[in-house]
Design a protein around this nucleic acid. Structure first.
Length: 270
DNA sequence: CGGATTTGACCTGCGC
DNA sequence: GCGCAGGTCAAATCCG
């Protein structure tokens, strides 16, 4: 599918993207800052380990969920952005996990920027929640299908399986354009078409590669699909610089990570 | 009234 | 061949 997996703004160079390739920050004090943050991270990890040491079931919960939710090839954007991106070869079938928003509570609907027409629903054997079957509603000839089902282990997670590729470029964009409204927003200023943004909830970080070619539509190719090893290294370096340079971003990131950790641990243990 | 959704029936593939 | 489970169809229904 030509756009199902982008992590960048769907409009290409939307206003409000944090520059990844801007001027380099003064490195010295920033490295100190990064070190302090790393130490803090280790300290928090240690504390979490201590908490989980005598609670193996909770440890399993914390460590098993996120890795199991990965994006194969093209991920759906916006709300799926919390999923990690792997560099596996692009398969025809992709599985995407996303935490369901409260508004999705009663519907197996995963907003991913495309319009879908539901053509069936089935209760499967290994999951008490019904599986919904969708086809791309934009183009009748589009072969893409999507299956959406709540996770049996975590009902707040929606698991979407995409089959085939979109053979068209146009899409409904309004949904995730608004979803991706950022609190950290600056226009991309560097030479490479990358963007990173944090949504208004502070829970989702969107890393994107916007394809700027005239014929390719503003939608981006999934990061996992276009990143070469060299480019990945540049990307990582620039990300490190970015993180070192932006206190507000670090604050948001720390809050997001902390919220994520707390979210996965039942409140009563604290 | 037209498009989208629901839902029971039907089809297909697979294991035994 | 049979039964089961997943996937699809299409008529009925809903909704704007």
């Amino acid at each position: 599918m030509d756009g199902d997996g982008e992590c960048s703004s769907p409009t290409g160079r939307a206003p409000g993207l944090l520059p990844l390739f801007g001027p380099s920050p003064a490195a010295g004090s920033l490295e100190d800052k990064l070190r302090r943050l790393s130490e803090e991270n280790r300290r928090l990890s240690g504390a979490l380990d201590a908490i989980l040491a005598d609670r193996p079931h909770l440890r399993a919960l914390v460590t098993s969920q996120t890795p199991s939710c990965h994006v194969h090839g093209n991920a759906a954007p916006a709300e799926v952005a919390a999923a990690s991106v792997t560099a596996e070869p692009r398969p025809k079938v992709r599985t995407v996990c996303a935490r369901a928003e409260p508004s999705d509570a009663d519907a197996n609907h995963l907003k991913d920027g495309y319009q879908w027409r539901k053509y069936g629903q089935k209760v499967t054997r290994d999951n008490p929640y019904p599986r919904a079957y969708f086809r791309c509603a934009y183009a009748p000839s589009c072969p893409v299908k999507k299956k959406v089902q709540r996770s049996a282990e975590d009902k707040s997670m929606l698991v979407a399986t995409y089959e085939s590729e979109h053979n068209h470029e146009q899409r409904a964009q309004s949904e995730y354009v608004s979803d991706a409204s950022t609190i950290l927003q600056q226009q991309q200023a560097g030479s490479l078409p990358c963007s990173i943004s944090v949504n208004s909830l502070g829970r989702t970080i969107i890393l994107g590669l916007a394809d700027q070619r005239p014929g390719s539509s503003a939608e981006a190719v999934a990061a996992a699909e276009v990143i070469t090893p060299e480019f990945r290294k540049v990307l990582v370096d620039e990300l490190v610089n970015l993180l070192k340079n932006d206190a507000e971003f670090m604050e948001s990131l720390t809050s997001a990570v902390a919220a994520r950790v707390i979210e996965r641990i039942p409140g009563q243990i604290f």
